[in-house]
Design a protein around this nucleic acid. Structure first.
Lengths: 212, 212
DNA sequence: TCGCAGCTTGACCAACTGGTCAACGGTATG
DNA sequence: CATACCGTTGACCAGTTGGTCAAGCTGCGA
């Protein structure tokens, strides 16, 4: 009678060894499936399969499909946005921007599934993370735009829209993760894909396309 | 007895007024739905609803969901790739590239659903158009890469990988269609979104990011 | 070693999926 | 204005979906 009510239903508060282990297994499997088929195109049976676990057991840890999805998103979001927070207003503008580009490109190479997960979500209208985009992400991006604008005002960067510069960096780097099915089809030298991309991107960003 | 067998089942070969009209209505509705939810995330009932038509009637015109999907893809593909074919080897390199960028950006603005349709398809591994990518698209892109490489060899463009330059243009232009849910959330001035994008892209491509 | 809370699952359910079909409504042609 | 084909649909079907549940199994502290 000491423990009044043991929360039998949701293992949420508990932190047993088996729990944390299985949760991670589910998150990994869910990232695999959701990043490939999007939310609506994925099934919990698929995820359970991919996690080598019965569907019923999976739903013991995450009560609904939506809850799995949100957990994967949350787990992945911070990693994905971290490079942007790293931009240092005190650093050299060109170095900082380039470090950001390289970091994003490295993420696209090391964790393309995370990129595809967001791509699917946003492509379908960001029904789950719309609010996050409108508040937290917007605040972060706005802050970085101010930094970039200051660099422009100091004459250290050419006059561009900071917001659109960020969009271009996102587009150019995530392209290799999101559309890898396409880039793989069109490229011979898939071995050095990311190195070639980095080199071309560097030339474009720092020299432009036309010789002076 | 004159007409031996009237092909009652497939109205494919027929071209009656009602047929062409309804086919177009279905294609339009299907683009709407497929571009939003992807192939697996869409249902024929949704498409029928969007076309203001009973599900049974829709399946009278297109026998399977897959066939609808393929028809929409085919209908949209040619329009989407047309600008690339327009690049003229005899023209001025900078003009030709910039005309291509502008054309792609205009398409992203005028027909973002087409862009999202392909984005969904490729994002999910291009299960339906993989073969097209590996053959026809690859051939087209290879031909244009040769043109760009010649321009580079003539010293009219800086030394970049033509393939990755094309990837960069695709990424930068389609980003505004595919991720509009995001760009809309982050931008204040959505009115001039595409004009600002065009201006920033022009500066980036032709001047680079760092003042000389 | 025992007991029990927590872990696991097969069987099940209602809602939904893509697709079929017989029957009914419209329309162009003679 | 008849009639033969085209167009349209509600009712239906088997398979799949997200989710439930009672019952069995397991790991772990006493």
């Amino acid at each position: 009678m000491t423990k009044a009510i043991t929360n039998k239903q949701r293992p949420g508060s508990g932190t047993s060894r088996i729990q944390t282990q299985n949760r991670q297994r589910i998150i990994t499997a869910a990232l695999e499936v959701f990043s490939t088929y999007g939310y609506r195109g994925s099934t919990v049976a698929q995820i359970a399969d991919s996690a080598s676990m019965s569907k019923a057991n999976l739903l013991y840890y995450f009560p609904t499909k939506k809850e799995i999805y949100l957990s994967v998103l949350e787990e992945t979001l911070s990693e994905w946005l971290q490079p942007l927070t790293q931009i240092n207003p005190e650093g050299d503008p060109a170095d900082e921007i380039w470090a950001y580009v390289k970091a994003k490109l490295a993420l696209s190479k090391s964790n393309p599934k995370a990129s595809r997960l967001f791509a699917n979500e946003v492509l379908q209208g960001a029904p789950m993370i719309g609010n996050f985009l409108r508040t937290e992400l917007r605040e972060l991006v706005s802050a970085k735009c101010i930094v970039i604008q200051q660099w422009i005002d100091q004459g250290k960067l050419t006059t561009v829209s900071p917001m659109h510069l960020i969009f271009f960096i996102w587009a150019a780097t995530q392209h290799y993760a999101d559309f890898s099915a396409q880039t793989q089809c069109l490229t011979d030298d898939t071995e050095n894909l990311f190195d070639d991309a980095e080199h071309t991107l560097k030339t474009l960003i720092f020299n432009g396309l036309v010789p002076q």
